[in-house]
Design a protein around this nucleic acid. Sequence first.
DNA 1: ATGGTTTTTACTGCGTC
DNA 2: GACGCGGTAAAAACCAT
Length: 313
Amino acid sequence: MWESGRDGAFRTACPVCGDKLIGDAEKGENVCPNCGYTTSAPADSGPEWKAMDLEEKNRRVRVGSPTTLALHDFGLSTEISRSMRDSHGKFLDPAMRVSVEKMRKWQSRTRTINSEERGLSNVLSKISELCDALNLPDNVAETAAQIYRTSAKMKVAKSKSILGMTAATVYLACRKCGVSRTLKEVARAAGMEKGSVARYFRLVLKEVEKEYVPPPSVEKYISKLINMAKIDPKIERLALQISRKTTDSKISSGKAPVGLAAAYVYIASVMAGERFPQREVAEYAEVTEVTVRNRCREILDNFVLRQEFAPIK
DNA sequence: ATGGTTTTTACTGCGTC
DNA sequence: GACGCGGTAAAAACCAT
């Protein structure tokens, strides 16, 4: 939790990047609009606080699990138990027993016993694990699951590393959902080399997604950095302002958005008279100071940042 | 594989506190 | 002296071809 600069009101903040969480009443969770972090905590935002406490939430239990793409059979499978009793707990007569036995056999044949399906459910659980580790919202996990499903269908996932496919689909899902997670971050959470995640990612992008999915915008990263570093939101506004006025240019082509964002944050901080060290922005952005400096130089070489951007105090 | 581009590594000099 | 900053050369990583 931090105190907002202007009105001094307390808000529930994202523990990952510090941005204000938005309550999703339907799911009873909070989601960070910036980095995509989710909690199962009750929603915040003012007056409705009490209505969303645990008790209230528990009263709204649903019947059966929600159908979800993250379960290999959409959570709709039926189990036929071995107990040989009917629904009232009575034992079945012998004739019934053999037919139930047949049903069970056939069902298991047509369901997860199928190696394809078993592999699928395996990967899907890995996907949700990774998403959990990265605190990603459900929609990203679902998107990742969807991507993996189609890639399995297209045989792209055939004889590929499960971990690699998992990381790749999760990263692609982040990009599709506009959630600002770095390849580096995903790779770290998956315990993989950045390079090999990138290889799987390119594969999936090319074979499954067909069209290019752009990385998160500079602005997304600016917000992320500001919030991670707990910098005053007024500097965020300034940084975004400068960034917008200087986007349409060659200075951003081919450059990593995070590095640019770091530069904007740094520039904004000095313009606001609250200098935030390069070293630290660079650290949060997981780039080098040199990169921050280079981006700064390019911005300042190509634009005259006038005093109108300066703080109004 | 290759070549062009970007990022990192490593190091140096300068001013300030 | 430590720190923040700016710069550079060369190595490494990246990307399209």
